[in-house]
Design a protein around this nucleic acid. Structure first.
Lengths: 338, 338
DNA sequence: TTGAAAGCGCTACCAT
DNA sequence: ATGGTAGCGCTTTCAA
């Protein structure tokens, strides 16, 4: 019970006006005399009338909703992403549909299905096929977040490669470290792929031998713990562990500390993202700051405007800057006192 | 471009039948002759027709969507929650709207607004006021997840109190520990409140002096790091740190390890949730297993059925069992070899 | 079995 | 400034 919604027609009848006038009043469109407006408002108040979304959406041929597709992994990264996206959507009065693909096979069709219920979709890089992305883009505005899509599909991402090269160079040059291990699957996500590329580039720049193949694990903290297990048991343990993100770096940190190793004296660890916790742990995590929230917000904005303006404002890509954050886990003396 | 949807009428015209027949075919309802069906299906295939959601929803007076309201914190707990909820929703062909309240003031009105776009809402305990919950429930089916709502609003939650009492008793009796510190804000969420109650109960049962007031911090990993900082600097450091969840326990673990303390020899740490990583760290985290995913799935199921059946199947509360998981961080010898 | 037509709740155009 | 009315795309009686 309780769901006996009152309609425009009811209000119109009650206020002794036409439905058109009620619509005008409740939308603030067109011209309405003070007297009429008062009568209508009165009836609206009296019955707690709120225009039905479905009726409105059908008439406007617009859902008032946007979709967010992500793999469904945990961690501060995804939470920031969701929040950044969501906050921009509520500001635009749009609701947010989410779809966790879990990297499943049938996610392509699920994404396409989602497209029928929203005005635009943001897809995290690496979660659905380029083919699906293309089909999607033929139906609704699409933006690839943290990755690049096929031609014609715009993207919003952060600068990964150069930042990782800079970080790696810091380890190689400033700290004179060799035998760096990279943790993360380059083929798992565009972000990791670029970071791995940056890692390699630093070695190449300095004419050092190619680094070992990456330790292909996921991006979650437990993967970092696993990485520590493998890396720190192997006889020639690496001098530094360069992680694809902060989550795994924290996992490696826990693993190393748990084995009684000292960081950075016995082993150096670095991350990527600059999650809130990374500044708090000791030693503070050396990492790269990425504006995750802003990335997501920008994505939401682009989708929202694209679904409003019919003018296809060219698929212009956005690349947000990142920033190397030196703390203590790389071997530098602690500089910041939080 | 590309959004020139084809309608029932088009298909009907193309197939030389009425819209009613097209509708019957695309929904598999009613009786349609083989010949008609073939003609319709052909037209549908040929033009890739898919019935519009808005039209369908308006006619059915049903959104085909459910809402999930949560504070928007990070961590495996929320991710599991979202995933459990979402997987059950996709199975029912419903989409999921999310709303991160961030524990803001205006979240009540946002939740009410969401109610106008979905067929039912799941609200995480402690995110909106009871008053809002009541209003919400008068519009759509509502279930409180991990908490209890006002009378008339059903809830789905896990057994917290007894489990925490058992865990605390284990520390107090088996390990003979005293001076246990509790980390978490009882007034922050129903879950924490119950866990704190269980913690106190164990002390009372054993006629021990009341424990110190809880260290009121959030539920994220960084809060655990903060907790370690405060707790382990104080002169009489506690013998054990009982955390409201695994996230904070992990934070405390990192903090303790980072200060060169040994766990459990120098300090005992326990959590709650049994996150995936908790079995992996060393020492393995002693905690309480909570079926988070199942909690969310059950919540989704109840909302979905409630929004289908008009029969108000009484607000029956669900309480899922929890289980004490003894590992090594409490001082017990490591038993499981993962 | 099939089709015509009446909505679902709202907006917007076109007269008045 | 106001009201009648024609849709938006679909489902579902009700007749035929």
């Amino acid at each position: 019970m309780g769901n006996s919604r009152i309609t425009v027609r009811e209000i119109a009848r009650l206020a002794g006006v036409s439905v058109a006038t009620v619509s005008r009043v409740s939308n603030g469109t067109g011209q309405v005399s003070a007297e009429m407006r008062r009568r209508v408002l009165e009836a609206i108040e009296a019955h707690g009338y709120r225009p039905d979304h479905l009726g409105r959406a059908l008439a406007a041929r617009k859902h008032g909703a946007v979709g967010l597709v992500f793999p469904g992994l945990s961690g501060p990264y995804f939470t920031e992403l969701i929040q950044g996206f969501e906050s921009e959507a509520v500001r635009a009065q749009a609701s947010v549909h989410i779809l966790c693909t879990h990297l499943r096979e049938d996610s392509d069709s699920q994404v396409l299905e989602m497209a029928r219920r929203v005005d635009g979709v943001a897809v995290l890089g690496g979660t659905v096929s380029d083919e699906a992305l293309r089909q999607l883009a033929s139906r609704v505005p699409v933006v690839v977040l943290a990755g690049v899509g096929p031609a014609g599909v715009p993207s919003v991402r952060a600068e990964n490669t150069a930042a990782m090269t800079e970080l790696t160079r810091h380890l190689l040059v400033e700290h004179g470290l060799r035998r760096l291990a990279f943790v993360g699957s380059p083929d798992g996500s565009p972000d990791v792929s670029e970071r791995w590329a940056g890692f390699q580039a630093a070695h190449r720049e300095l004419s050092l031998p190619d680094p070992d193949a990456p330790l292909r694990l996921g991006l979650q903290q437990q993967d970092g713990v696993l990485a520590a297990e493998r890396l720190l048991s192997g006889q020639p343990a690496p001098e530094a562990v360069v992680c694809a993100n902060d989550e795994t770096a924290l996992g490696v940190l826990v693993g190393a500390l748990g084995r009684g190793l000292r960081v950075p004296q016995d082993i150096v660890i670095t991350g990527f993202d600059d999650a809130p916790i990374s500044a708090l742990v000791s030693p503070g995590l050396t990492t790269v700051r990425q504006p995750v929230r802003e990335l997501a917000a920008e994505t939401a904005r682009r989708i929202l405007t694209a679904s409003d303006d019919p003018i296809d404002g060219g698929p212009e890509d956005v690349l947000l800057p990142t920033e190397l954050v030196i703390r203590h886990s790389c071997g530098c003396p602690a500089t910041d006192n939080p």
